[in-house]
Design a protein around this nucleic acid. Structure first.
Length: 419
RNA sequence: GGAGAGAUGGCUGAGCGGUUGAAAGCAUCGGUCUUGAAAACCGACAAAGGGGCAACUCUUUCCUGGGUUCGAAUCCCAGUCUCUCCGCCA
């Protein structure tokens, strides 16, 4: 959420930067609405002041006049709050502004690779896809999921299920023990207000699973990522500067409708309605965001380093970034079956964009209240990491070797094979 | 599901229908004192919005939404949330 004052003050800058984000926002309109709105506010306040004076005077002769004023005020107020909500609704649909070091571009083709690491293994056979491997092992069952639930779900079985669980634990342990994150096991359901706070609502409602708890309760959603619930920890709060930074990690299922991705990644478990993800969230003083983003993305790549999976790190261009982000690194892992890199983590700095929506602030040195900076990143997507391990660690007979660092989490197993 | 209690500034906590935006305490910040720190003392300290180059000024806000009144933190109605007790249950 942007401050309308900033838009007013720096209109051209906003227009320019939003143009780079590749979306059409009615910025001109919001300015004229804002002008009308302020005019009404002035009218209203003048009347209110008059009314207040009368009531203070306790002069009975003026009471009649005061009643008349009330009627006028109600009238103006109606129009004004109408305008206000129009403004708010436009405002809440405007994405964050990209930082100046973000490359300008239309789509993913303009993303810039900034790091490449790990050795891509040469297979002396044709590497199988993860779903071939999984189905041959009898450990990934998509048909069963279709029967019980529908498309884009999967049953993971036996040692693969164990591998998935091991990955989750390994990642959390790494982040808590080496990267200074605090483990959280959060609710998987969020209110509409919470969803609004991180920017999933109102614009991306179509991607969310809404659920009904009680007939008369407010709206509730399954979280599409733990970012939502973890970031909102500071919602409506004023944090003491000494308590920053806050760094939390959680492994949770995530639920996404994946609307608009029909026909994309329909095979296998690359794109599911439900998947596990280990999520990192940092809450910092807002001028420390850039620094924290480096730290966070390094925490994410540390996992890949330890798993010895080849990856690259790219910086997303203005047109490819998410709604709330001011800068995003994607980390992509090598998938032999596709002969290319696929996204396995996305680390974003949101600046104070989300904090403004959440009304999350901190008290800085001279006692003034500032909006916090928030960052989130996958550390990593567990399902996709499992895919990467299956494909990169496969052997000719369709077995899967266990990476060294996972062995403590999978005692007595060297490899996963048909048994 | 049944019964009660409550919701006020960063926190704790007063509050009579009319200079109450709100006592007091804590915390925080500035200062005096001190070699330094602590203590003590003095001072500052809510947010959002509008107007103004500025000093400043105005409006709104005491859980939310309605209502009564010239005037509501204070009275009435509805709702939300929290806590305690009982029941049920992973």
């Amino acid at each position: 959420m942007h401050n309308i004052k900033d838009i007013r003050k720096d209109f051209n800058n906003f227009k320019e930067k939003l143009k780079n984000r590749n979306i059409d926002t009615d910025l001109d309109n919001i300015i004229s609405l804002d002008e009308q709105n302020r005019k009404l506010i002035q009218e209203k306040e003048t009347l209110e002041m008059e009314k207040k004076t009368i009531s203070k005077s306790k002069d009975q002769k003026l009471f009649e006049k005061s009643k008349e004023l009330s009627v006028k005020i109600v009238e103006i107020n109606k129009n004004q709050s109408n305008l206000q909500s129009q403004i708010d609704s436009i405002l809440s649909s405007i994405p964050n502004l990209p930082l100046s070091d973000v490359p300008i571009g239309q789509d993913e083709n303009a993303n810039v690779e900034i790091e490449k690491k790990g050795e891509i293994k040469e297979f002396d056979f044709k590497p199988k896809t993860h779903f071939e491997l999984g189905e041959n092992l009898n450990m990934l069952d998509f048909d069963l999921a279709t029967k019980t639930t529908g498309s884009r779900f999967v049953f993971v079985k036996k040692q693969l299920a164990q591998l998935e669980r091991a990955l989750s634990n390994f990642m959390i342990d790494t982040h808590t023990q080496k990267n200074g994150y605090t483990e959280i096991s959060p609710p998987l359901i969020a209110t509409d207000e919470t969803m609004y706070g991180t920017g999933q609502l109102p614009k991306f409602e179509n991607d969310q699973f809404e659920i009904k708890l009680d007939a008369d309760e407010g709206r509730k959603f399954l979280i599409p990522t733990a970012e939502v619930i973890l970031t909102n920890i500071v919602k409506n709060q004023i944090i003491n500067k000494d308590d920053l930074p806050i760094r939390v990690v959680a492994s949770t299922p995530c639920f996404r409708k994946e609307a608009g991705s029909y026909g994309k990644d329909t095979k296998g478990m690359i794109r599911q309605h439900q998947f596990y993800k280990v999520e990192l969230v940092s809450i910092v003083e807002n001028d420390k965001c850039a620094e924290e983003l480096e730290r966070m993305s390094n925490a994410a790549t540390m996992i890949l380093d330890e798993l010895k999976l080849p990856y690259r790190k790219i910086i997303l261009c203005t047109g490819d970034m998410g709604f709330s982000a001011e800068k995003t690194y994607d980390i992509e892992v090598w998938l032999p079956s596709e002969n290319r890199y696929r996204e396995i983590s996305s680390c974003s700095s949101c600046g104070s964009f989300q904090a403004r929506r959440m009304k999350a602030r901190y008290k800085d040195k001279n006692n003034s209240k500032e909006f916090l900076g928030t960052l989130n990143g996958s550390g990593l997507a567990v399902g996709r990491t499992m895919i990467a391990i299956m494909e990169n660690y496969q052997t000719q007979d369709g077995s899967i070797l266990i990476p060294e660092v996972l062995k403590p989490y999978m005692p007595n197993i060297d490899k996963i094979s048909i048994n």
